[in-house]
Amino acid sequence: MAVIPLTRKPLSLVERTYVPAILSGLKTTFKRMFRPNDTLEYPEQRPAIPPGYRGVPTLVKDPNGREKCVSCQLCEFVCPPKAIRITPGTVPEGSGREHVEKAPQAFDIDMLRCIYCGLCQEVCPEEAIFLQNQYSLSGYTREELVNHKDRLYELGGTLPDSHYKWDKKKAAAEAGPAH
């Protein structure tokens, strides 16, 4: 790597007393006193959430109300602080969704551990877990801050789906083999 030697301009006597610099600093701070505040006064004013914001992780349903998570446990695996705990389960026959075969029996996210890294959202092959806009989370007990499956779906709501992968699969299975 090339080294570029830089020589500093020698300071003049006045500059070396630092008095002009201090005075200009004083001028800056004094002028700053009369400018409007930059503060967002939080509880009354809320910040605008930019797109791609990583809030509380939630589980979502597709527009048909189908629970998208199939409990593949990849998020549990990738989660750096081990905040996610899933108990996988089988979709019972006759539920209309048995072609998905697998769904979480329990899905807990410990928000005391979550670091909002978004790896769960990134790794999810079913686009079922999203870090959405909720950023304000508080509770009185540790138990309150463990989001269970129903709470996660309540927070997550419904997001649009561009694939309807499982519905297509079911349609293909009902149509039967091509031969």
Partner: peptide, 10 residues
């Protein structure tokens, strides 16, 4: 207060 005003805070 003075520090806040100088830093653009209320």
């Amino acid at each position: 207060k003075v520090s806040a005003w100088m830093q653009g805070r209320p």
